[in-house]
Design a protein around this nucleic acid. Structure first.
Lengths: 198, 198
DNA sequence: CGAAAATATTTACATTGGCAACATCAAAGC
DNA sequence: GCTTTGATGTTGCCAATGTAAATATTTTCG
């Protein structure tokens, strides 16, 4: 039986990140603690200290992995879609879908309360996630698409819109059950913006 | 001297809320604790229990007061402004201004991690805040202003946009110093939407 | 006045993150 | 092969936190 209990774990660092994400999925952000993560992996609560300076560093690593999956979720269905409105819809849907399916992880990712945005790895992962929005906002036409900072303004508009919707939905202000009734889903808002004739 | 130390505070409940807000302003959300709030008022850390069932209830009361001020900030400069684009700008500017000036309180208000949105008082205050956005979104013209759910969709768009921008700015993704440079301020985005000819 | 309710304190306890000292293992040198 | 050294993990401890129970003080009111 390969399930011997060894003194050394062997691959603790990524295991802690995985355990943290698992707790977020199963129990939520409130239940995420250093001791809970360590306990889930089967080590003492001080073992993570050999790989992460403190809890914040571990949470930042969890957030980094979150951004990787977040970017992947947005790119899902984006690769095979030809340029145009469908790409916009696919990416924004991916953004919201990720937030809905992994609410605790999403909340952790975007809160400086948990994540250290000065961390180079986190920053790189977050930028790669932002790059998707940047990409699809290219050529997007809307009332503010004019002037010198057009591209930047368009990115900001799109990011704010999607991010705001996701967070409001997460906090219960926009309930999932009501979204088709009282509250319109994001896909009924975003696609109103059209791309220019290329 | 009227500064006698009495056994009974006399008006502890609102004093706790004020103390909590003061800590948020001066020290931030991380330093907000039941004991810190009680200590600031000058009572033992169990005294709040006579007025609030637990910490969450106290934080909810703080959030409620936050929403009242939030609505007031949006209405600032709105009263004397005639209907039209200036109203849109005044309200959204108030939204962002409040978030920037009171970042910790704002974060607390919109996180279910701290506030209980089932609380009737909080809900009422939050709705009154939302009502301002609802009001100014009436008659707003934009690419999605068509179809049966037009008003609702417009509210959602505007709320998501402003709220998303505020949160991204708070988390450092949009830095205040750069806002006029790399990142456009919200007032350069929102006013692109025009009102219909009435 | 005196009882009851409201309000505040003291003491205790479980959880949490962090630290220091020690234990165990694995890999590198001799 | 043996030892030494560094990496990795554990135990015991501490301060801070929120909650609870028992007690003390003040106010209210019959």
């Amino acid at each position: 039986m390969p399930k011997e209990k060894k003194y050394h774990h062997g691959d603790l660092k990524p295991a802690l990140v995985e355990a943290g994400i698992a707790i977020l999925e199963e129990e939520g952000l409130d239940r995420l603690s250093l001791r809970a993560i360590a306990g889930r992996v089967g080590v003492s609560h001080t073992a993570p200290r050999n790989h992460f300076a403190n809890l914040r560093a571990l949470l930042t690593a969890i957030g980094t992995e979150g951004f990787r999956r977040h970017a992947a979720a947005m790119r899902e269905g984006l690769t095979e879609t030809s340029p145009g409105p469908e790409r916009l819809q696919a990416a924004t849907e991916g953004y919201i879908r990720f937030a809905r399916r992994h609410p605790a992880l999403f909340e952790l990712m975007f809160s400086k309360h948990y994540c250290d945005f000065d961390d180079p790895d986190l920053l790189a992962a977050a930028r790669r996630s932002y790059a998707v929005l940047e990409e699809i906002s290219r050529g997007l036409d809307w009332p503010g698409a004019e002037g010198p900072d057009r591209q930047l303004r368009t990115e900001t508009m799109l990011w704010s819109l999607v991010h705001g919707y996701a967070l409001l939905a997460l906090n219960g202000q926009i309930r999932e059950g009501e979204e088709r009734g009282r509250m319109p889903w994001i896909t009924e808002v975003v696609p109103r913006f059209r791309y220019e004739e290329a």
